[in-house]
Design a protein around this nucleic acid. Structure first.
Lengths: 344, 344
DNA sequence: GTTAGCACTCTTTGGGTTTAAGTGCTAACG
DNA sequence: CGTTAGCACTTAAACCCAAAGAGTGCTAAC
């Protein structure tokens, strides 16, 4: 990519901001009039033609103004966007909302996307962490019915999983309590599968306790660990309707594609966790998501988590013509607030 | 309403079935040709004009064919629709799906709507029962952190609620277990608020046990019962995208309205539980739902439950031009299968 | 390097016409 | 009397065409 001159950059920025604002292709005349350029339309045409050659702009058709390409937007967010600070009202709403939220992880996350959907005209999105990778704080067994047992597993971050399974023999609630205590004593910064390994190892070592109780415990542990938690990972979306307000989605087919991607959440999840381990805040523009249905959408997401552990991504999905200057700081802010909230 | 002649009825039926099939206004000519009427278009026109006067048919505009009104459809489902039996393939799929489902109520319901969304070109919908009205089978407390306690409440129908709350004093897991046992011993065909009342009464009576433990238990019980379960009642929807395939929803504004109603589930819930205590199977056609956004939709729903207790409604939402003959038996079948499944 | 001018392209808009479908009405028919 | 054929009428949709509007690229002059 060749270097852009200062003037080219200024023009590019003006085109993009005008386009973000109006949603319509921007032509040389409007540009020359609106912005404080001291240049004639003709000159701007030349500059814009160059920018088109470089791939930053394109035209829907000859005789229409220019609109930014994905590359144009990319250049904009990387170099040009001036980030406005989060409005006091928004800050207030975010903090108020998060304080009210109950302690369950799901509730906190849900409040997060809801807030984003309310503060922006876009879709709020959050990826729930894979439960299998969470560190377990507590496991408890509840006898429901004969052999049917409910395991309640709580992670340090406050995620609660209910896992229903059948034991081979009927156990009393007292026995289950004893087993719970045993398990909880040896948890300790382990994930569920870590616990599983540890339990099996302990049992192999600890031959002394091979009494009847212990055999039962082993059996129970086998049937419990055989069953995976059903929520492996998932995404939550809110404010899908917001998208309908944007003119670029008045095309029914396009909308259908996007909603389809929303419905089978797998593809969204793949995008969110795709470049996992990258930067703390990510902007994915149009085709960069490598998801055909999402070609006309951008995502702005940030990691949230507790301490040094990343739990997932939270952010928004909107048209590529997104108000990046406002959204990027906002997403950043909310991810931060949420991480702090989960620290408690 | 004046009585309809046999011929009028036959014509009405033909018009409706043709319209359900084609989706387009049906005129006298097509009717005369297709159906085995031995009548000329002119005669049919006369009949149709009468039916329009009676309010069963209407025209989008002069010089268009007729389409059935809500009243027309109503007459059709009440008197005319011949119900086809559920196809063997569908029966198989429903049973297979339900067998696989885990034991949690939510899972069973989710499988239900999913199946409906797959077997029909409409939206599957189910109303989750209000947890506050469910009979409680089991309550268990899990100590998470100092005063923070997780209550796991399981209903007889398999619904699991996690309720997070704070106790005033720090209690050990052992104490919590004892309290759990105490509570579970006195459950017995009561709802959560029933349990609450009973506990408070028991404690008032049972002065003898007013020792330290008992004071704690009372305190805990107070903070626990103060907190309502967060899932009061709710609806689950699946297959929203199916609706996009129907021509009557290609109008963007109309679609937007419907999706808005879907998003804020309250209005759907109101429709579902509106005529609660009515018939086992209900068909709500167009404006009968009294929900402006749903003016062009019909609902076919049936009660599901266990034993004599109704838990909620399951069914589909589609255009008023719905294939009632097929859908009504299908919804009936699945509600039945689900009720049996919940019996286990 | 910048700009005015100009011919050109392409979409959008609007009017007008035609086509197709279907109606209501009337008069004839068995 | 019910039924039917015929016909004039209505309306939406499809189509065409012309004009308008916006914007471009290019060239020549400043």
């Amino acid at each position: 990519m060749t270097m852009l001159s200062a003037r080219q950059i200024k023009v590019l920025q003006a085109v993009i901001e005008e386009y973000i604002h109006s949603g319509e292709p921007v032509g040389s005349r409007t540009l020359s009039r609106s912005s404080a350029f001291q240049l004639s339309p003709a000159t701007l045409r030349n500059v814009m033609a160059d920018l088109e050659d470089e791939g930053f702009l394109c035209q829907p058709h000859t005789s229409a103004g220019r609109i930014p390409t994905d590359l144009g937007f990319r250049f904009y967010v990387n170099n040009l966007a001036g980030f406005t600070s989060v409005s006091a009202a928004a800050q207030l709403q975010i903090r108020a909302r998060l304080e009210v939220a109950g302690g369950r992880l799901e509730e906190v996350l849900h409040d997060g996307v809801l807030t984003l959907a309310q503060l922006t005209p876009y879709v709020g999105v959050v990826s729930l962490p894979d439960f299998r990778q969470m560190i377990i704080r507590h496991i408890r067994f509840v006898k429901l019915h004969e052999c049917r047992i409910l395991a309640v597993v709580v992670s340090v971050s406050g995620a609660v999983q209910n896992i229903l399974f059948d034991s081979e023999t009927s156990l009393s609630q007292d026995q289950l309590n004893r087993f719970s205590n045993y398990l909880n004593a040896l948890l300790g910064n382990l994930t569920l599968s870590g616990v599983k390994r540890k339990v099996l190892k302990e049992m192999a070592n600890d031959k002394r306790g091979y009494d009847e109780l212990f055999a039962q415990v082993l059996a129970l542990s086998k049937s419990f660990f055989a069953k995976d938690p059903d929520q492996q990972s998932d995404v939550m979306l809110d404010g899908k309707l917001n998208l309908l307000e944007h003119p670029e989605f008045s095309d029914v087919e396009r909308m259908k594609g996007i909603f389809k991607a929303f419905e089978e959440k797998g593809s969204i999840l793949k995008i969110l966790d795709g470049a996992l381990g990258g930067e703390q805040l990510r902007v994915i523009i149009g085709a960069e998501s490598c998801c055909e249905e999402m070609r006309h959408c951008s995502l702005v997401t940030a990691e949230y988590g507790r301490e040094d552990r990343i739990l997932g991504q939270i952010g928004v999905i909107g048209p590529t013509r997104m108000d990046y200057s406002r959204i990027i700081p906002l997403v950043n802010y909310i991810a931060d607030a949420m991480s702090r909230r989960l620290q408690n």
